[in-house]
Nucleic acid binder design. Structure first.
Lengths: 206, 206, 206, 206
DNA sequence: TATGAATGAGCTTTCATTCAT
DNA sequence: TATGAATGAAAGCTCATTCAT
């Protein structure tokens, strides 16, 4: 767990460290990231790093949590739709998804972090960090799911963790696909179609 | 790329090497796998390994390709459904999916390899290997997609690589969810529901 | 040397520090003991520790001296035997030895400390501390020796520091041997035989 | 365990490594010895060191075993006394002891190593090495003990491991005492008196 | 065709100690 | 009198890869 000492640092220095770590993890993933490069870039000593964080995984977990929370805060909550009914819910989701994509596109390093988070890992230290992250994001997803169900927009015949897993998987797939498009393809992402597929998979059967 | 030299080895020795590598990669993932352990288990010298394979990623790509091809061969092709129409196609897919799951459950090391393959990686060498693997599996998936479309079972309004990405993502999500269930849950996987979601996402809109 | 500042602390806090240090040194030996753990357990700051003690070795020397003095005080002095003659002296020694063993068995941490003290060390800081400790215990041993000589129980043809070294060495050997016995061996230590060997080595020649 | 690779090295390089390690361990003890210094002094790479030895403790065990075996070989075995009876046995022991002391005095680094060996350790890796060393030396000591008993020179009423422990403890004590004498004391060590004490402790009671 | 010795850059982590406040 | 932030040197160890034979 991040030590309180870190929180007591001058914001500028906190930023420097987090930024350096973000760069490193985004560029090299978790395992290949080098703490040596992080401390060089952040301009602190190796001792200091271990004074602030338990270990590499702790640093990763912290930097990822900060970035994700910032992202969620930026995008704003998935608000309760103004009108009742599935259509309004899915519109809200699509709007949120488009926003999130836009922001991730503007912050490719955070997108990269997210991919590291979602990647499988055999490393126990990283797994700990991943669990910690999950604990940050899952409640948020569950809230959205509840909202969807109360709008009659999401099926209730399957367990919610399965639905969430599928939603994450589809999101990841779309991300992969978007990434694989040639860089000069300036067409906007087909968010309508993508959310449409998600909707069809998750909405109640008729 | 695997060197032809490897193919010229006595099959027994090829098996020994591939088996050792499969064990190692399945147990430790790509990065944490140790070539030293592989050559110890395979009973060959370090020099020989580099005589047969370019590098670690090359070994991984080869072992993964061999295992996947064996898996696909075991399960058999997704045959042209005996009857026309979407229902027959999706039944075939579900049957295939159930078979594949069964086989993966029987070969956990191959399942583990698949997860390594599907995991995102920032490691350039591994990415190269992943691309190589993709080249093995994609044509197969595309064949299935064509089949589905000619049955009217799969939408044609979205690019096929997007549909494939979504299918892979959902498959991965289901795998994750299946893995996360308590080990003593002996209920059979809800393949029907899972393929149902896939179908709803991919079938043509009405 | 312990700073007088330490003596001025409230006894409760002195106890907390000494107890934490005793635990740490007994568990990990000198080198592997961590000052960080000690200050955590004692609930004081790093700065305070260095305000009270010169360094790690100083802390070790102090904690060891306190414990040994307490042990000697508990066991009581090797009293002048009530009767004259060697037999009475050696009986006293044996009684003392048995008492000391009993007490060490009841305070394994102190026993562990004693072993660290008696262990050879190339570490200059620890050597300094060991010398300091010696200065605490040697006078006590010399008093016993004088007692023995005046009873005619201890030879006078060899220098007293040699005799003391031999006595310590034999004590250490016995300790080692006692420790090496299987834990389920509940037979009482053969103190008679052990002191008998010591006696034969140290008593005057006939 | 030392790897056979090491034995295959040119003798000159083996010597260089063993010599560097001996210097380092003798000067700094086990824990404070630095592998980095050893490899610098030996002129080999870090990788090579770990190619030859499992780890630090393995290196220590090997260097110590080599030196002790050389010492024992130099001094020669404790030969069966030419005449029967205790006196001849103890004369042999004293002669051996004097020889060994002479040689240790001529090789202070080996003496230092011996002290590290005999020192207590909390370090599991070092303990492993110490056990390994013990396995080298104990049989030798036991042989001497058997010899002594068959000459009627050593008591049979106490277990041999206790007698050996006492003998080692006394030897260590004498070593300590000899070391503590001022360096300008050129008087020969009182081996007669020292062995005399050992004899009195170990010989049968009358 | 096959070997295995040799490498050295790289890793994460620990720790006693200093010093400005 | 007391703090705790900051340090940097040092540690042991792993590994994929190269290359002379």
């Amino acid at each position: 767990m991040v030590r309180p000492r870190f929180a007591r640092l001058p914001p500028a220095q906190q930023q420097a460290i987090l930024r350096a770590a973000l760069d490193e993890f985004a560029t090299h993933g978790f395992h290949d990231a080098s703490l040596n490069r992080v401390i060089d870039a952040a301009g602190i000593s190796k001792g200091s790093m271990y004074y602030y964080f338990d270990d590499k995984a702790d640093l990763f977990a912290h930097v990822a949590r900060v970035e994700f929370e910032r992202l969620l805060a930026d995008v704003g909550p998935v608000a309760r739709p103004s009108e009742p009914g599935p259509d309004a819910f899915w519109s809200t989701v699509e709007r949120f998804y488009r926003d999130a994509l836009t922001r991730l596109a503007a912050h490719p390093r955070v997108a990269s972090l997210a991919r590291t988070w979602l990647g499988a890992s055999e490393n126990p230290a990283l797994q700990r960090a991943q669990l910690e992250l999950e604990a940050t994001v899952m409640p948020w997803l569950e809230r959205v799911l509840v909202l969807g169900r109360s709008s009659g927009a999401v099926r209730t015949d399957l367990p919610s963790d399965l639905l969430i897993a599928v939603a994450i998987g589809m999101g990841r797939a779309m991300d992969t696909w978007l990434l694989s498009r040639p860089p000069d393809d300036t067409a906007p992402p087909p968010t309508g179609a993508l959310v449409g597929m998600l909707r069809r998979a998750l909405e109640p059967q008729t």
